[in-house]
Simulated assay, not measured.
Amino acid sequence: MSDLEIRSLRDGETDLFLSYPHEPVPGVGVESRRSYAELAEQRQYRPEWTWVALREGRVVARCAFWGVPDGTQPFSLDWLEPGYEPDRIEIAARMLRAALAELSGPDGGRPEYHLFLPPGWREDPVVARAANDRLEAAALAGYEPFIERFNYTWTQAGDPAPQRSDRLVFEQVDDAEATELCLAVIDGTLDGYTRRDVARHGAAEAARIMVADLAEFPSPREWWRVARTREGEAVGLIVPARNHARATVGYIAVLPEQRGKGYVDDLLAETTALLVEQGADLVGADTDLGNRPMAAAFARAGYRNTAIRVVLQ
């Protein structure tokens, strides 16, 4: 290992990162679905957030942390390729430890590792081997398992359009009511992030964090809606949104007293329709593997499970 040079990129070294000689494993990570150079031009990847391990001048492992263009800290690690050296796990772990020493926040919190994988990834030996190399290296660098999530895609061209509700009305919602709704839906939530925030900060602060995080989407705040019955009774909250890549189901929640009435289908249909009205022909979404009711709602609405996202923290 003493023959390794591990460092972040310097300005103008995109070609060094791209000199990594191995083809991506289909479906593993973001490597086969993203252009590093294009996102680097948009400041979603940056030289100081991008690391390589060099052996005799060759890039034998690489990683990149992703963030929003105007952010000061990366949001997540989503690009990690340990390579194929006999000691690849140790190389990748050492590279990650060096990067995290520079990129962890002032409170010591590190960017999460988001590993995108195809559905059924454990059954494919090539994919499973590539995934396990990454997970093992991340574990050696201090990462711990958090959650797995279904990633979904709906396309206007290929999937049936969910039918909008005729029993609910949707109105714009201010921050105060949105926070009240988020606080109410915490009761019985199956969302791993919300449960983590409740355990760390309490329910009221978790609701405030939820609204603040949703407000960071670059799409207009005016897209948010409260759902009500025709008699004016609150049913839930929807946040149609756009991230830096595509339209997305930012958030959907049904109040505890309204669950079991099929309202989640109405909320998802309205979210999809609003995004289509804003010009989306493709909508992404995700939910925890443990949130079977939401997963079933996506399937009923014509959303297809296109990936699994493994999250480590």
Rank of each mutant, 00 (worst) to 15 (best):
V30H: 11
S8L: 00
E5S: 12
P118C: 05
L100K: 01
G105E: 12
R228I: 06
P125W: 04
L103P: 02
G260I: 02
W79T: 13
S8T: 06
S104T: 13
P160N: 07
Q163C: 07
G192H: 14
V126Y: 09
T14S: 12
A157W: 08
E233T: 14
L289K: 11
F146R: 02
Q172W: 12
L190K: 13
A204F: 05
G158R: 13
V283N: 08
G105K: 11
D288K: 09
C63W: 01
R304E: 14
G250W: 08
P74K: 08
A64T: 10
E5W: 02
V249E: 12
G83K: 05
R134S: 04
V198D: 02
T229G: 10
A40E: 15
V283S: 04
A61M: 03
A92F: 04
A199F: 00
E38N: 11
N305Q: 15
A299P: 00
A206L: 05
A128I: 00
V283W: 09
D266C: 01
E205P: 00
R230T: 03
L289N: 05
P74S: 07
T194N: 05
L255G: 02
A204L: 10
G260V: 03
V173Y: 08
L77F: 08
F170C: 03
A207G: 06
A273L: 09
P162V: 09
L183Y: 11
R88I: 05
V59R: 02
V276E: 13
A301C: 15
R62V: 01
A131Y: 05
G284I: 02
R46T: 04
D159W: 05
Q258D: 01
G12T: 04
G290I: 02
V68G: 14
P24T: 04
G27W: 03
P293N: 10
H244I: 12
A207I: 02
L255R: 13
R122A: 14
Q42R: 15
D187Y: 03
G109C: 04
E180L: 13
C182Q: 13
L103M: 09
A93H: 01
A227T: 07
D266M: 03
A273T: 10
E81V: 03
T72L: 12
E231G: 14
A297E: 03
V235I: 10
T271G: 07
E31P: 00
V30W: 07
D288P: 11
D286N: 15
P82R: 03
L103Y: 02
L96W: 06
A141M: 07
I308W: 04
E277P: 04
D174M: 04
F146M: 03
D15I: 01
T306D: 14
L183P: 00
F75A: 15
E85V: 05
G236M: 00
M210D: 14
M1E: 11
A128G: 01
R55W: 09
D175G: 11
G108D: 08
G232N: 06
P119K: 08
A273I: 10
D87F: 06
G232S: 09
V59N: 02
I89R: 09
V254T: 15
S2L: 11
V254K: 10
E56A: 15
S76E: 13
T189D: 06
E205H: 10
H244P: 01
R46I: 05
P26Q: 00
L100V: 01
C182Y: 05
R304K: 12
E257M: 04
L214M: 13
L96F: 05
P218F: 10
A64W: 09
P125F: 02
R34N: 07
D11S: 12
A93P: 00
